[in-house]
Design a protein around this nucleic acid. Structure first.
Lengths: 227, 227
DNA sequence: CTGACTATTGTTCGTTTGTATAATTAAAGA
DNA sequence: TCTTTAATTATACAAACGAACAATAGTCAG
């Protein structure tokens, strides 16, 4: 196909940079066209390298796939945790509101992230590694939510807290999927409002008007992942 | 591979039977191993025929795939509608409860159905036919839910009804996904109870104890699809 | 019982997939 | 500048995919 005399020029990059590039390329392709669009050739082209390089950094395509999935899921949890970072424990309602609201704006609620989540979801039933990542992320998030619910100013009842954490988590999931899949079907901030209203009703609390703001609360770090 | 002298014996079946068999085989394979497991060869083997036959009944594999997806989604909606079939309009709370509860028992909440839903979900972003089926089913279900909510005995408020229908639909979706994906993580009837509690809280209604029964309500048809 | 119809089989084709490996060359150290 | 190293390219390969098509044999009308 190509003249053996001409060989593609290239630059050597640090291992970390190349791995990140390949993971980012895989995620972007999965977000756009599902797992079947993320072939080794397509990933390599997107990352600006040749297919052979992938197996220099990852023992198999599956390994790259797992790394990409783990990255997406972990960054979502980290984003929710960052939203309550620095908020005082003396205001459990404000912390819960911030934790919930973080799921309904970028970079968490985007068509790309929802797309990646959906693409890998059905894969988890056959791939034990994917399943483990999914389960750990899911239960980890739900546990954090239950902690925030248990901190509300009301009589303690762990069994009730568990049920309500399951319900709130399901509501967040459902709204996140819908809002991310059909972004044009909802007005700006509408999904977040519906989520806060629903969770407030289920838990018997009333969130202050400030909780309905469409941006991260003041005091929350607003920078990107790397400094 | 095989001796041309020996030819596999076969029976001729009616067109409808063969089509149904192929659709059922495709659904079972998708439920077990995702869309990538449903190859023409695997579908044919599962249906007890040879690969060539598929293209006798369907112009392409995609056409079979679409038929299978449509079948799954439509049967879910039909199951929910059957649950309120025959319930009097004088009891809007009972109708809403029955409509909700139908989603949290077989044949709607099963790992297989949730698996099929998840497998096709990410496909919808690139395949317009899949997307159309998904959207029609989703909005159709939500509209039915909003009708039931609007029939509740309280002051009319269409904008509020819309938001609450979105919220209730999201809660149902999230719980259905979780309950279907991790059936061992929940006690029998637990998901249904959480759903009814959450929806009751969000709508400000209290469902009677009979609504929490784990089976279809009396008066509801309990037969299979065909007599 | 016979002949026509078509449902069904068996096989082949070109493409794409993930993987393997040899050949090169950019970059760093002596 | 020379040598070494390993990051990167380029090519090859077996397997599996959807599709196409000719050959065969159940089934039904007459």
């Amino acid at each position: 196909m190509s003249d053996p005399a001409i060989r593609r020029p290239y630059r050597r990059e640090g291992e970390e940079k190349r791995r990140d590039d390949l993971i980012a390329a895989a995620m972007a392709l999965v977000a756009e066209g599902g797992t079947e669009a993320a072939t080794v050739r397509a990933i390599a082209a997107r990352a600006g390298v040749t297919p052979g390089l992938i197996r220099h950094y990852f023992q198999s395509k599956e390994e790259l796939t797992h790394a990409a999935y783990r990255h997406v899921m972990e960054s979502m949890t980290q984003e929710a945790l960052r939203a309550i970072e620095g908020l005082p424990e003396s205001d459990p309602i404000g912390r819960l509101a911030a934790f919930v609201a973080a799921n309904f704006r970028p970079p968490v609620m985007t068509p790309a992230v929802v797309g990646v989540w959906a693409s890998y979801m059905h894969l988890g039933r056959n791939d034990p590694v994917i399943h483990a990542i999914h389960e750990a992320t899911y239960l980890g998030y739900r546990d954090r939510l239950q902690d925030l619910i248990a901190a509300l100013p009301r009589p303690a009842d762990p069994a009730r807290d568990r049920r309500e954490a399951i319900a709130c988590n399901a509501l967040i999931d459902g709204l996140w999927i819908e809002g991310g899949s059909l972004p044009d079907s909802f007005a700006s901030g509408e999904v977040q409002r519906i989520a806060l209203d629903g969770i407030g009703a289920m838990l018997g609390v009333r969130f202050p008007d400030t909780a309905y703001s469409n941006t991260a609360l003041p005091g929350t770090a607003d920078r990107k992942t790397a400094p």
